[in-house]
Simulated scan of single mutants.
Amino acid sequence: MAKGRKSNKPREEKSDWQERVVQIRRVTKVVKGGKKLSFRAIVVVGNEKGQVGVGVGKASDVIGAVKKGVADGKKHLVEVPLTKSNSIPHPAQGAGGGAKVMMRPAAPGTGVIAGGAVRTVLELAGVKNILAKQLGSGNPLNNARAAVSALDNLRTFADVAEERGVPIENLYAT
């Protein structure tokens, strides 16, 4: 190698972020000269440690759309409180567009019982035991957004105690 030249090897960055493409759609826009073709990618980004986001990217090629979707997903991350059994602390509901998602915590060993985009969101959030049901629309984007909305509504005992300004022990009092 010549003096002062850098190697062309790409640097390997160890990232704990995972991306999954939920849907890629070919979309067209009618313009003066005819139809303009582009791609829309719905991407779910998560680290399986309680952070997840849904992003949408549009570009004239699939790779560009996926990259934009990943960047958008990282901008819209949500923090998910997980229990010791990698479940959610309480039942939750979320809505996105015409889609509604219902989630319930499950016992250890149950697994992720959910379908479509909701399953992808839950897996990348790091939830291992949960029951979820999509209600209403079957649109993958709206269902993914509804799932993120439901996860965003979750609160822990510590959060509730802090909001109310009482010690956490007082929440357990019967």
Rank of each mutant, 00 (worst) to 15 (best):
G126P: 04
K49D: 13
K133G: 03
K133N: 09
K58C: 09
V45T: 12
P89T: 02
G138V: 02
K49V: 07
V52E: 04
G111L: 09
V121K: 02
A65M: 08
V44Y: 06
A132S: 06
N86Q: 13
T110C: 10
V118D: 01
G55M: 04
A114V: 04
G126I: 10
I88S: 12
K68V: 03
D72G: 06
A95R: 14
V70T: 09
D61Q: 11
G53P: 09
S60P: 00
A92H: 05
G98P: 00
P91G: 09
V44N: 06
G50L: 08
S60H: 11
G126L: 10
N129V: 09
T83R: 11
K74Q: 15
G98F: 03
A92C: 06
S137A: 11
K67V: 02
E123G: 08
P105I: 12
V56W: 02
L135A: 13
G115F: 07
L82N: 06
E123K: 13
G115Y: 08
K100M: 11
G46T: 11
H76D: 09
V44E: 07
G109Y: 12
L82P: 06
G64R: 07
A107R: 14
G116F: 07
I113Q: 14
G98I: 00
N86D: 10
A71Q: 14
D72F: 05
I63S: 14
K68D: 07
T110S: 14
P89Q: 03
Q51G: 00
G109Q: 12
A99S: 14
G55P: 09
V45Q: 03
A65T: 08
A65H: 08
A59Y: 02
